[in-house]
Amino acid sequence: MQVSWLRRALLAAACVSAIVVAACGGGTVVSQFNPNRVVAFGDAFSDVGQRGTRYTVNNATAAAWNERIALRYGLTLRPSAAGGFGFGIGSARVRVVPDAGGDASTPTITQQVDTFLATQPAFSAKDLVLVNAGIGDIVAEVAAINAGTQNDDQALAAVEQAAADLAAQVKRIANSGAEHVGVVGVFDLGRTPWATQTGQATRLSNLSQQFNIRLKTDLFGFNIASRVLYIDAEFYYNLVTQNLNNSTYGGINNVTDLACNSIDPGPGIGTGAGQVNSALCTDATITPGINIALTLFADRIYVTPAAASLFGDYAFDRLRARW
């Protein structure tokens, strides 16, 4: 088992090297890429208001990381429900239904790509495509463990399959005309309040890490490296949690408390009924005494507007360095 996981880790490292070589000094940028359109697929982390709100504090500063990237390019990313190109939606999984909250009507990432290819102008060299997933699948698989319907090995196999399915969608996008594709896996869910509150930090870290390893491994070796950039959310948010009060990371100093107290009596974000759901959070439901500009998490999993913008800026810099 250790040999197998070491091999995966080495393959993932090779994948990162192959996919980000230009961003690491391996090439010269001849002309700076400026997209005409940003297209985004994903789960709650990428939801720009598909059902009317985002998974964060819904105030004047609210913006998902991909919206921040679009803004940095001088563009706007609106939800597809409002005629835009932001297809991400809360609790979505890569291929499997129902979603993390048990809703079978939520479009998977695969279905989001299906819809785009069937209804929108084709991908072009002037598009920037942003893809993220994994959180919804991990939430659903952990719920099954906690319900006693599967064990950790089964959950790991399902999560790795979800990562393989996501890689397949990335390749599908790249092979459908997209020449600039940014891919984001999951941040370390073992560092979230969900992990702390439920005592599942080791389990959640393992599933998060193995999802990312499998995603990068499955992208490696295919003729799309020049068109795909892996943007490491796990790496970035680990730096945030390890460097509190550091101005480089927005001065964030609270990585344990929830910025919101917007309780959802239903399934919410999929971590249990009666828990905080940031999709319901506004300035009126901020936890008393919390400075949301210095707090990482809005609910048990998803981040505040400040934290989303920080990652958006980091991702923009990676994209700009590459293309």
Rank of each mutant, 00 (worst) to 15 (best):
N212C: 06
D152R: 07
N146R: 12
D137R: 04
E179N: 15
N206Y: 07
L156R: 07
D218L: 08
T217A: 15
G190W: 01
A201P: 00
V129H: 02
A201Q: 14
T196K: 13
L128I: 07
Q242M: 12
A178I: 01
T202K: 12
P193M: 05
V240N: 04
A133P: 00
G250S: 09
V186Q: 03
F235I: 06
Y249W: 06
T248V: 14
I145A: 06
N175C: 10
Q209L: 09
N261Q: 13
A155L: 05
P193G: 04
A147R: 06
I145F: 07
A144D: 15
A163V: 07
Q161E: 08
Q154C: 02
F222M: 06
L189A: 08
G182T: 03
T196F: 11
A225F: 01
C260I: 02
S176I: 10
S205D: 06
Q209C: 01
T149A: 10
Y249T: 09
L130T: 07
N261E: 09
N243K: 09
K171T: 11
S176L: 09
L229E: 10
L156F: 01
L189R: 06
A140Y: 03
L189N: 08
T196L: 12
D218Y: 00
T196S: 14
N223Y: 05
R172N: 12
T241H: 03
N238R: 14
R203Q: 15
T149L: 07
A125T: 11
A158P: 12
L215D: 10
D264R: 11
L207P: 05
R203Y: 00
V186K: 03
L204E: 02
P193R: 05
R191Y: 01
T198S: 15
D152E: 14
G251K: 07
L128T: 12
Y236T: 08
